[in-house]
């Protein structure tokens, strides 16, 4: 089940009620992603049914946005900012260390399915550079030495 019957019914009702159903594409995709971590092909097909569009029409929009994941991701996505402010304060070294610690390259997911590492553009945390976001938590002024503890904390948070 990508979405509960109730969620589907609610979304369909909203689609019916809005004069511009297409406006809801991202809302529907977000709902599917929030529930499943990513949007699978079946997710695109479900969104298409909810929205009354073809899967291709949904896919055209879904593949445009980098924060709609069309490939499986780990339980938590690590977005590490690679834009200018964070770059100026050591994000490249941070990225290297993260890859070492996780044993994966950018764009990959750890073998245990816990983390996916994705470089991202500016997170709007320039005063707290270098910054990264893990799941919904934003980490600022991250020192290389802190990374292990941060990752451990995130792992424990999931398991607890």
């Amino acid at each position: 089940m990508l979405l509960s019957e109730k969620q589907i019914t609610q979304l369909k009702r909203r689609v019916r009620e809005t004069p511009h159903p297409r406006e809801m594409i991202l809302d529907v995709l977000h709902a599917i992603q929030d529930a499943n971590g990513w949007v699978s092909d079946e997710g695109v097909e479900l969104a298409a049914i909810i929205l009354g569009l073809s899967p291709l029409q949904v896919e055209e929009v879904a593949t445009f946005y980098d924060k709609i994941y069309r490939r499986p991701v780990g339980r938590k996505v690590i977005h590490i900012c690679d834009s200018i402010c964070c770059w100026s304060r050591g994000s490249e070294a941070l990225m290297q260390r993260l890859q070492q610690l996780l044993g994966i390259a950018a764009g990959e997911t750890t073998i245990d399915g816990m983390f996916t590492l994705l470089p991202t553009c500016c997170l709007g945390a320039c005063a707290d550079a270098p910054a990264l976001r893990i799941g919904k938590t934003l980490y600022g002024k991250v020192a290389i030495e802190q990374l292990e503890a941060i990752l451990d904390g995130e792992r424990t948070e999931v398991s607890s």
């Binding site: 092909d41 569009l53 899967p55 291709l56 055209e60 593949t63």
Partner: peptide, 19 residues
């Protein structure tokens, strides 16, 4: 037609079908 279009963005555009 609704089954052929443009996917992706920037220099990685793909003109094709959903599958």
């Amino acid at each position: 037609g609704t089954d052929f279009g443009v996917l992706g963005s920037r220099q990685r555009l793909y003109f094709g079908r959903f599958s």
